[in-house]
Amino acid sequence: MAEFTPTQLQSKGVTQLQDQAILALQDVSISYSGKAAVSKVSFPIAKHKITSVIGPSGCGKSTLLRALNRMNDFIPNVTTEGKIIYNRQDLYAAEVDPVEVRRNIGMVFQKPNPFPKTIYKNVAWGPGINGRKDSMHELVEKSLKQAALWEEVKDRLDESALSLSGGQQQRLCIARALAMAPDILLMDEPCSALDPISTAHIEDLLYRLKSSYTIVIVTHNMQQASRISDYTAFMEMGDLIEFGKTRQIFTKPHKQRTEEYVTGRFG
């Protein structure tokens, strides 16, 4: 389905992925005002798996992630080249509607960004504008339960989302994304603003979501990447250095740079 040449994938060490890929990046290059931030990156994203993207600060992880649901459209002077294939369609083809893309590929941001509305409305708003009318209550409850937040907020759904703690806000943002029942969930360092307990909460959550969602997560936390993800992409200065099964990347990486980076963090 995803159009990779076998050699391309072989060189990255993953062939069996070809058929399960829900999203495939092909020679994706992104630049800001002509300054390259991501160059010629190709790798597949497996369905119902967690793929993590790691690499030093400024290497282009967020830039790449935002390209996957066209959030880069909102940054002026961004140019994106190459193809990102989703359901046989290039996300950047002229006839593709970015709004439609984002309905199917949701995103959770680095810092929690709940709307300054009630907890209930935060979850219900996305489905609401997208035409859902009935059984909204059930959907809100289900999403909040999926995000492991329901028990904490079920009695205060009409309170402002801003009254929640940072970790709760982030789980609310996850619930907000889940309420759209996206095919793919993109997460950019979702735990970086959180304490260890909230982080553990969210890691548990991701693990449970895996059975029904495809997740791409950017993280600086090596342990987190190795704990929760099935595949890992390692980037440096805009280049994809190595992509493969997480266990392989962390135990016997093919590239020396990968090994240095991965072990360096472990100390």
Binding site: N87, L91, E95, V96, D97, E100, V101, N104, G131
Partner: peptide
């Protein structure tokens, strides 16, 4: 063949 995902009413 427009849009990603054909949800006709949507």
């Amino acid at each position: 063949p427009r849009g990603i995902h054909a949800r006709s009413t949507a």
